[in-house]
């Protein structure tokens, strides 16, 4: 359940990346044009979601996979 919630958060970030509502907005936010500072905050949010993904939805059986075929 948590895994799917985190996947959904990731999809939400992709949607939020297309910030058409800020397209012509030249206001300053955090000392930078808002069209830039918004996307910087999106990078921070991406890092947080990635942290939660590796913490709670890490793929299993990666390190422990034993060879079944030595043909290579």
């Amino acid at each position: 359940m948590l895994k799917w919630a985190l996947y959904s958060a990731l999809v939400a970030l992709f949607v939020l990346h297309n910030d058409i509502w800020l397209w012509h907005d030249g206001a300053l936010f955090l000392g930078l044009p808002i069209g830039l500072s918004y996307h910087i905050l999106l990078c921070v949010a991406a890092s947080v979601v990635m942290f939660l993904l590796v913490k709670f939805a890490w793929p299993e059986q990666l390190d422990g996979h034993q060879p079944e075929d030595d043909s290579q």
Partner: peptide, 18 residues
Amino acid sequence: GIGVFALMASVSALVIPT
């Protein structure tokens, strides 16, 4: 202008770790 950050940087910040 600043839109280049959204074009390549913030989208890379989402796509690449994914």
